[in-house]
């Protein structure tokens, strides 16, 4: 993308997600400004045509929650303290949704942050696991997402394995949860390899 400082396009299964980053840039809203570090703001949005039944444009409660969690999932990796009084703005647009868009959004956003030249400790990746038909499985498809018994989206910093996003809905025993978490992390590590390859290829050659 031309205008943004950094951008990334991710197709993950049938998900199509676009992420763009502006910043660090001057922050004009005084009451949200932090004097000693940058503020990472995020907006997750779904296109009206991204789902079967047209989604009304504009933010709803679900998008707002995902926006907040995405910002919190990415922030630990970014050296925010290097840019006092500024903002780093992350925009995620879901063009086609097939379940697991929040994870795809986070993975794309961290590529866009790297592309914008923003210093980071690690590149955050996200993947979901869940339970469907009594089985704990990795990366639920849309059908499993809706029919499944549980869904556990997870984001990690792959170098250290630290978890930066964790949600769960549905019912799991403690053992099943641990299994799901391990599977999600395993998925993250696989995606992380792809994510790094994508960046190196982009600037690749010489």
């Amino acid at each position: 993308m031309e205008r943004a400082d950094g951008s990334a396009y991710l197709e993950f299964g049938d998900n199509k997600v676009l992420a763009a980053v502006y910043g660090p840039r001057e922050f004009h809203i005084r009451r949200f400004l932090k004097p000693n570090m940058a503020v990472l703001r995020c907006r997750y949005n779904m296109a009206p045509f991204s789902v079967e039944d047209r989604k009304r444009p504009g933010p709803d409660r679900r998008s707002l929650e995902i926006s907040k969690l995405t910002s919190e999932a990415l922030s630990p990796a970014v050296f925010l303290e290097k840019f006092p009084r500024s903002s780093i703005d992350v925009f995620i647009e879901v063009l086609q949704a097939e379940g697991g868009t929040r994870c795809a959004g986070i993975t794309a956003a961290s590529v866009a942050l790297a592309d914008a030249g923003i210093p980071m400790r690690d590149m955050v990746v996200a993947c979901a696991a869940g339970k469907s038909n009594g089985q704990v499985v990795m990366d639920l498809s849309e059908w499993e997402d809706k029919e499944g018994e549980a869904d556990v989206p997870v984001a990690i910093m792959p170098r250290t394995g630290e978890i930066t996003l964790l949600q769960m809905d549905g019912q799991l025993t403690k053992d099943e949860f641990e299994q799901a978490l391990d599977l999600a992390k395993e998925g993250c590590m696989k995606i992380s390899e792809e994510q790094k390859k994508a960046i190196k290829n982009r600037y690749g050659g010489d």
Partner: peptide, 29 residues
């Protein structure tokens, strides 16, 4: 890419890198 381990041991972390214990890691692409 960010987070990539560049070296382990007694090395100096220059611009665009940071130290995590004995590892020198990249902060940037």
């Amino acid at each position: 890419v960010p987070g990539e381990v560049l070296a382990e041991g007694e090395y100096y972390a220059g611009r665009g890198t940071f130290k995590d214990d004995s590892k020198v890691c990249s902060a940037l692409v």
